[in-house]
Design a protein around this nucleic acid. Structure first.
Lengths: 341, 341
DNA sequence: GTTAGCACTCACCGCTATAGAGTGCTAACA
DNA sequence: TGTTAGCACTCTATAGCGGTGAGTGCTAAC
C-alpha cells in the first residue's frame, strides 16, 4: 500500500495528466501542487512509484505519466466523485424534452448527450429483441405479396419487418393470427414464442396449417434479430482529444465502431455490474489497450436492461465520466420505470 | 473547344490524377500514355491547357492537376461509363437479401453499400414524413399516462411517437380516433391531415372535444417531424483517400455530417434532376469546395422520392460512381415499384 | 530524511545542403 | 510551322546537424 505522500504525488500526476495530456516532471508538481516538499524529494518518490509500476516514462528525460495500474489505484482509492451541477442537469433534461418522441430516440439522444459532454465515444446497448416481452402485433398490407409485421414490446420498442405472403395464405390469415397473438401472448418473452407455447396457450382450436406457416415466419424473423441494438456516437468529439490527433488511431476506432458485434462483446462483461471501469491494459482487445471503458447498467427485475458506456483514452476524466454515467443511468431508469408500471 | 490532342492529354491527366492522387508531369504522361508525342510537345500543350483553365499548378515545379473546369469537361465530354460487372451486381443483391428486413433497413443498407464500394461518403435522403401518404394508425398503450402512436405510410415507413394522454381522455378515445383515421384517411398525404380535411371527410358525427384534442396532438407530432430522413455513412472509408490524410479535413467533414439540415440543403438542388454532378468550386458551401457531389434521384409519379448521393474529393472516380449510382437508383426503383402497386 | 547541485539524456526546433521532379525557354530539326 | 532535344531554373521534400530546454538520477551536504 502506498503511504500518504506517495498517494498525494500520484494523485497530482494523474490529475495533471488528465487535464493537460502532457507528461509531468518533479519541478512542475512542486510548483503547481502545494505538497510542501522539494522537487528532489518528489523525484525520489517518483522513482519509487515507477518501480512499483504506478507511473512510467516515455523516454529517459521525459516527465512521468500514469500507467494502467496508476489509473486503477486512482479510480479505486483516490477518486472523489463530484455532483453534477444544476446547470448540467437542466441542460440534459431540456435536451430530452425537445428531441425525444419515441423510445428509439431516447437511446439515440442518450448516446448523443454522453459523447457531447465527455468528448469521448458513447455506447448505448439496448436489450435484445428476444429478451423483451411481447405487447402487440399487427400486420399491415404493403402490396399484393408482402405484409409488414409491426411488433411492439414492453418498453415501447417498435419493430417492423417486411414479410412475404406465402402461396395460399391471405392477409386475413395474418390478421387472424395477430388477434390470437394479442390475446394470448401479451407479456410473454419473445424468445418463448414458438409452436410449443402457442399450442399450450390456445389449444388445437386453430387451423394448424395456416398457423404453422405463419408462426414459422415469425420465429424466423425473430431469429434474424439476434443482435442487440447498439447506439453510438462521438467520433468527431474523440478527435478533439490529443491522443487521437493521429489518423491511424482514429481509423482503428472508426473501424471498430463499425463492428457492432465486437462492441457488444466488449460491453458484455460490463452488463452484470452496476458501474464497471476497465482501464487500458486491462482490456481484452488489443486495439483498445490504450483506452478505458466506463459503463453503467440499468437493471430491472434483477436483469440487466440497458448499458451506457464511455470509451475514450485512458487519460479520461474518470470522476466526471462516472458521475455523468450514474446520473444518466438513473435518468433512464426513471424514464423506463414509467413504462414498466 | 479543345482540339483532339488537347482532349487526349486532358483525359490522361485526369485519369492519372484520379488513380494516383499525384500531380503528373509531361515526361510521365509521355511514358505512361502512348500519345505518340514527346514530353516537350506535351509541355507546350499543358501550358495551353493551363492558360485555358483546365489544369493547374500547385507550385512552379510541380506537375499539373485538373481544375474544377477540367473535371467538368472530363465529366461532360470525355467520360465513357462502364457497365457494372456481373460480380458486383450479384454481390449487391446478396447484401440486400441478407441484411434487409424493413424499409428503414433498405435505406441504411443502400448507404452502406454506396460508401463501401466508392470509399466516399454516401448520403441517402428519404422522403419527408409529411410528403408520404397515410396508410394505417394504431395507438398502443404504454402505461397509464402514455400511448404510442404507430403510423405507417405508403412506402412501408413505420413511425412511432410517444404521446401523453391528456386529462379526461382514455385509451378508448384514441382507439376510436384511430378507427376513423384508418377508415377515412387512407391514401391521403400526411401534410393534409388537419381539422379541416377531417371535418370535411367525416362530418360532424364525432364527439368534437375529444376529437379536437387528439387531432391537435397528432398535428403537433407530425409538425415536429419536418426534417427529412437522412442516412449516411463512409467516414471511415473516406479516411483511406489521400486528400483526407489530414485531421482538420476529416474533422470538418465529420462536423458537417452531424448537421443533418445542412446536408439536406446541400442535396436539395439535386433532387429535381435524375443524375446531378457538382464539382469542387461549383459547390455553394465553402467547406466542400474541394469536394464533388454526385447524386441520383428516384422519381415516382413525377415527384422526387429518394435521393442517393456520393460526397468525396473532387478527385473521385466519376465514371464508376455515376454508374454505381444509376444502378443503385434503378435497384431502389424496382424495390419501391412493388410497394406503390 | 530532505534538499541543492550537477552532469547527463533526449525530444524538439530551426538551419542548411542536397536530391529530384518538373517547368519554360531556346535552338535545331523534319 | 509544328515538333523535339537540351539546359538552366524553381521549388519541394528529406536528411543531417547543432542548440535549447525540460527533466532525470546521483551525490554530497544539511
Amino acid at each position: 500500500m502506498l503511504d500518504d505522500r506517495k498517494q498525494r504525488i500520484l494523485r497530482a500526476i494523474v490529475d495533471d495528466y488528465i487535464s493537460t495530456a502532457e507528461p509531468i516532471g518533479s519541478r512542475t508538481i512542486a510548483k503547481k501542487y502545494s505538497l510542501g516538499i522539494s522537487p528532489a524529494t518528489i523525484r525520489n518518490e517518483m522513482a519509487d512509484l515507477e518501480t512499483l509500476g504506478y507511473i512510467k516514462h516515455l523516454h529517459t528525460s521525459s516527465g512521468r505519466i500514469p500507467s494502467s495500474k496508476g489509473y486503477r489505484f486512482y479510480v479505486d482509492d483516490l477518486l472523489t466523485l463530484e455532483q453534477m451541477s444544476e446547470n448540467e442537469i437542466s441542460l440534459i433534461n431540456d435536451w430530452y424534452a425537445t428531441k425525444v418522441q419515441s423510445v428509439e430516440e431516447i437511446f439515440r439522444e442518450t448516446s448523443r448527450i454522453l459523447s457531447q459532454l465527455t468528448k469521448n465515444i458513447s455506447l448505448v446497448l439496448a436489450p435484445q429483441l428476444t429478451q423483451t416481452t411481447f405487447q402487440y402485433l399487427h400486420f399491415s398490407p404493403l402490396n399484393n405479396h408482402q405484409v409488414i409485421a409491426i411488433i411492439m414490446t414492453d418498453a415501447g420498442f417498435i419493430n417492423n419487418k417486411i414479410i412475404d405472403i406465402p402461396q395460399g395464405l391471405s392477409l386475413s390469415d395474418f390478421e387472424y393470427i395477430a388477434k390470437i397473438f394479442n390475446h394470448y401472448l401479451k407479456g410473454r418473452h419473445l424468445c418463448d414464442i414458438n409452436m410449443n407455447t402457442f399450442r399450450k396457450l390456445c389449444g388445437e382450436t386453430v387451423n394448424s396449417t395456416v398457423f404453422n406457416s405463419i408462426i414459422n415466419i415469425i420465429e424466423e424473423a425473430l431469429a434474424q434479430d439476434k443482435k442487440e441494438r447498439l447506439y453510438f456516437g462521438g467520433a468527431r468529439q474523440l478527435m478533439e482529444q490529443p491522443e487521437f490527433h493521429n489518423l491511424d488511431k482514429v481509423k482503428k476506432i472508426l473501424s471498430m465502431l463499425e463492428e457492432e458485434q465486437l462492441l457488444c462483446d466488449i460491453l458484455q462483461p460490463h452488463r452484470d455490474k452496476n458501474v464497471a471501469v476497465t482501464i487500458g491494459q486491462e482490456n481484452k482487445y488489443n486495439d483498445i489497450k490504450d483506452c478505458s471503458i466506463i459503463s453503467a447498467t440499468y437493471h430491472f427485475d434483477g436483469k440487466p436492461v440497458a448499458t451506457l458506456a464511455i470509451l475514450g483514452p485512458t487519460r479520461m476524466d474518470y470522476g466526471k465520466v462516472i458521475s455523468l454515467l450514474k446520473f444518466m443511468n438513473n435518468n433512464l431508469a426513471n424514464i423506463f420505470h414509467k413504462f414498466h408500471l
